[in-house]
Design a protein around this nucleic acid. Structure first.
Lengths: 152, 152
DNA sequence: AGTCGATATGATATAATATTACATTATGGG
DNA sequence: CCCATAATGTAATATTATATCATATCGACT
């Protein structure tokens, strides 16, 4: 990990701590550590992959350790769960709820988050047309990303 | 189950058998049975719920029994998997691939399938804008359905 | 400082979901 | 009939997630 990347991660962690504090929640060392693992991964990690990494420095970590941290981070809108992969990625716009869509590249495994207004509206209207009140919408588009499709 | 509903189910099973035959696949008794369980459920069923029901008449059924049947039915586009629920529902338009969106009512548990052209297009364009080639798109909207929101 | 309540973590067990691997049985084409 | 293929049987195990109860940490209040 480059020095630059580490500075970025630190900045994100600090920002996350602020966001939590505003909600009356605290980003403890443990939660901060789990969040940093997710930030540094560059690709989605499953709960047990995170657990393995956490164990390296945090002897005695067990499944509830990681699932509790993940629940917290999800509640604080610091991470997202990708349902198709049972895996977790950082939220690009940390700390507040926002509609998002995920692009999952089946070649390189990278998942990118987008926030497309037109798509969000279209889904909203589609639900409304059925008299349905949406609370939480999952959009996960599997395919091939630009980098993999036209390799440089 | 009413006689009317049973006739409907039978018709769907027969139609499914045709669809499979056209693909050079066969809807065996086992697969047909699993499909009928899904058709008759009225709500999404998980693999193990299906397994329990299958065991009633099919002694010796095991996890692979059900997962194989589910894989087959998914391939034939006879059912959908709802990722959020790890559960399965019949496809409303059996037998061919089509973009769909699912409305999951968190009050009554019913999942309904819609096929909204505008939403499909909007997602397509959102992906395209990123240079992303979509292969398979999951849209699952959780919320409250019309019936639950305004109970009659 | 002491203690109470709330929050967070530790530790063990187990539930729920899904797959691997290999054996056996049907089925249709030659 | 014989073979190849597809389908199913069977046992074991991997992966994902939760329940439960004990212990520790921390701030508010006295």
């Amino acid at each position: 990990m480059s020095a630059k990347a580490r500075r970025r991660t630190t900045a994100q962690l600090d920002r996350a701590a602020q966001v939590c504090a505003q909600q009356g929640a605290q980003l403890t060392d443990l939660r901060r550590h789990v969040f940093s693992l997710i930030l540094e991964a560059g690709a989605p990690l499953t709960a047990y992959q995170l657990l393995d990494r956490l164990k390296l420095t945090h002897k005695g970590a067990a499944p509830p350790t990681i699932y509790r941290a993940l629940d917290f981070l999800l509640e604080q809108h610091l991470i997202h769960k990708i349902e198709r992969l049972n895996a977790f990625i950082p939220c690009v716009e940390a700390g507040h709820r926002h509609p998002a869509q995920f692009l999952i590249c089946c070649q390189c495994g990278v998942v990118s988050e987008i926030e497309n207004r037109a798509a969000t509206n279209a889904l909203e209207h589609a639900a409304e047309k059925e008299g349905f009140r949406p609370r939480n919408t999952v959009v996960e588009i599997e395919g091939v990303c630009a980098a993999c499709f036209r390799p440089s």
